[in-house]
Design a protein around this nucleic acid. Structure first.
Lengths: 203, 203
DNA sequence: ATATGGTTTAACCAAATGGTTAACAAATGT
DNA sequence: ACATTTGTTAACCATTTGGTTAAACCATAT
C-alpha cells in the first residue's frame, strides 16, 4: 500500500530533521539524534537523503518555503500601505509564535553560509519587495508619510518584528523579566509595533 | 621575563579563540583551528583553559564585557532622552561595524544555552536599564513623548540597531543589493534610526 | 508459492575530535 | 652551577560522528 505523504518514512525523517536542525543548527545537530527523533535507524537517513548536508539543505528549503510565501503575500496584496504594515505585523508575529525557532534558524544558517542566499533568490517563491517599495514611494510623493528610503523602512519593519524572537534570552536578561511576562510583551507587540511604525511615518 | 598581558600565550590563545568562536560558534569551532590561529600546539589550549567549554566561557565573558559597559554608559549617562537615543544609535552602530560578528555570536550562544544569561546578570557590569526606563516615564508624564511601555521602546531601539547586523545575508537577499550598497545603508542608519525612533515618539 | 523490488536494520568503518601524557625546553630561584 | 618550576611539544588515546555494507524484511506481481 502506497503510504500517504504525511506518514511516509521520508517525510517523517524530514520532520524530525526540521525539529533537530532548528533547535541545534547544522553544526550542533547529530544524525543519530535525528534518527532517534524519527524513531528509525540512522542508516535510513542516508538511504533517503544521502548525507547530512543534503538532509540539511532539504530542511532549510522546506522551512524557508514555509516563510517565503507568507512574506510574499503580505507584501504583494492590494492593501493600502498602512493596512499592509498593520496586517504584516499582526500576522507575522502570530505566525512566528507558532514557529519560534524559525527566524533564528534561517538567519543563523545564512550567516554560516552567506552564499546560500544566492541559490534561494533564483527560486520562484523568493519574496519580492518591488511592489512594496513602489507603494512607499507613492505615499511619500502624495505627502501621506514622511520621506524615507524604502529599503530603510523595510529593514525597520523586519527588525521590529523579528528581533524580539531572535534575541529573547538576551532581552529577557536586560529587562529582568520572566518568560511569561516576556511572552505578554511579545503579544502586545502585534499592535504595538504597527503603531510605532505608523507614528514614525507621520509627516 | 614576565610577558606583557598582550603578547602572553594566554591572551594570544584567548584572542585566537575569540576570532574562531565568533566566526563559527561553540559547535562549529574546532580546538585545532583555534590552536592554528594562535600558532601553537593544541595541548597548550588545555594547559591554559582545561577544556573547550571553559575556553568558550572565557571568550564569551570577555566578549560580553566588551559590550556591556558600552551599553551601560549609553543608558546611564546624564543626557536627555532624545540625546541618549541619538548618541546610542550613532555610537552603537559604529561600534558594531568594528565588531561585526559580536551581536550574532552573543545572541546565538545565549539561544543555545539560555540559562547562561542568569550567570551574566549577577556580574556587576551587567547593563541596568532602570534609569532609562524612568527617564522614558518622565518624558511621557511631561507630555514630551507619546505613551509607550519603556520595555517596548527599549526592545524597539535594540531591534532597529542590532537586527540589520545579525540578518545581513537575509536582508541583502530580500533587498537584492550588493555588499557595498548594504554597508552604505548601514552607515546611513546611524542617523536614520534615531530619526525614525524620535518621530515615532512624537505626541 | 516464489521471485522481485524497495525498505529497514545491526554491525561495522574511517576520520575527526576533545583531551591526555610524557618528555623536552626555558625560565627562575638558590 | 644546579634544582625546580613553568611553558611547550609530539605522539597518543578514547569517543564521537558521518557514512557504508550486507543481510533481513516485506509488500506486490507473476
Amino acid at each position: 500500500m502506497k503510504k500517504t505523504k504525511d506518514d511516509s518514512t521520508e517525510s517523517n525523517i524530514l520532520n524530525a530533521a526540521k525539529t533537530i536542525f532548528q533547535r541545534k543548527g547544522m553544526d550542533g545537530a547529530r544524525m543519530q539524534e535525528i534518527a532517534d527523533e524519527a524513531g528509525i535507524n540512522k542508516a535510513l537517513l542516508h538511504y533517503y537523503y544521502r548525507s547530512k548536508q543534503l538532509l540539511f539543505e532539504a530542511v532549510f528549503k522546506s522551512v524557508f518555503s514555509l516563510l517565503a510565501p507568507q512574506l510574499n503575500k503580505a507584501l504583494n496584496n492590494d492593501d493600502s500601505l498602512m493596512d499592509k504594515i498593520k496586517n504584516f505585523t499582526k500576522n507575522y508575529i502570530s505566525f512566528i509564535i507558532k514557529h519560534p525557532y524559525l527566524p533564528s534558524f534561517i538567519i543563523n544558517e545564512l550567516n554560516r553560509n552567506p552564499e546560500f542566499v544566492q541559490k534561494l533568490i533564483t527560486e520562484k517563491h523568493f519574496p519580492n519587495i518591488e511592489k512594496f517599495k513602489n507603494q512607499i514611494n507613492e505615499n511619500i510623493e502624495k505627502g501621506k508619510i514622511t520621506s524615507i528610503k524604502p529599503e530603510q523602512l523595510f529593514i525597520n519593519i523586519m527588525a521590529l518584528n523579528i528581533f524580539p524572537f531572535i534575541a529573547s534570552p538576551l532581552l529577557k536578561g536586560f529587562l529582568k523579566i520572566s518568560d511569561e511576562d516576556y511572552n505578554k510583551l511579545l503579544e502586545e507587540r502585534a499592535t504595538e509595533v504597527s503603531n510605532f511604525i505608523i507614528n514614525a511615518l507621520k509627516v
